[in-house]
Amino acid sequence: MIRLENVTKHYGHDVVAVRDASFDVNKGEFVFMVGPSGSGKSTLLRLLNRQDRPEAGAVYVAGRNIVDMPSGRVPQLRRNIGNVFQDYKLLLNKTVFENIAFAQEVIGKPKHVIRQQVPAVLDLVGLAGKEERYPHQLSGGEQQRVSVARAFVNRPLILLADEPTGNLDPATGEGIMRLLDRINQIGTTVLMATHDQRIVNSMRKRVIQLDRGVIVRDQARGVYE
């Protein structure tokens, strides 16, 4: 599903965000990317949805090298990738329903499909009945659930989560992890950047560890070290 071959990414001339990184992720896998702040976790996620481009190497998503993909085809790529962020990135002037529907609206889904699929995904993330609330009327955990719902509503092949539990208390964070695990079991490949030791150790999924842009460990059913 995902393949990186000798990927190197710099910011400016001297800051090396990722150096010679290579790994494969199979369809349906759940992978944690761990490491301290500035180790390159978020950069790797940005490379996977073409927010950034590497200076060297190849990034394959669903069998296609996206490094030299023409800009006009990037939207199509992104329709197959859901994104969850630490700060949720919800639109504050839109209701829960509208925030999720927005992800479908901008790719041209018809209204009757939106009316059918948004309630279903709200049910999946445990927010049924809160469609008309605005983000400021929700708790942090609920806002993150809306963010997950928005990322998942178009049934992406891959879900990229960048520190999704970073702003949440442990109990709420566990709820989000259960949700991501459920989405993974449905068949979506999940890559999650985190430095939450407790979550990584409790889930025992594959762990890719980075240190100053270099992959120093790639372990199946790993723990946080």
């Binding site: 006009g72 939207p75 790529l77 990135k89 639109l91 790719i107 041209g108």
Partner: peptide, 17 residues
């Protein structure tokens, strides 16, 4: 800009935006 970023990330084309 936040809305536009979200639009881009969910796959909206530049022309649509």
């Amino acid at each position: 800009r936040r809305e536009i970023e979200v639009m881009k990330l969910v796959g909206a084309t530049d022309w649509f935006i």
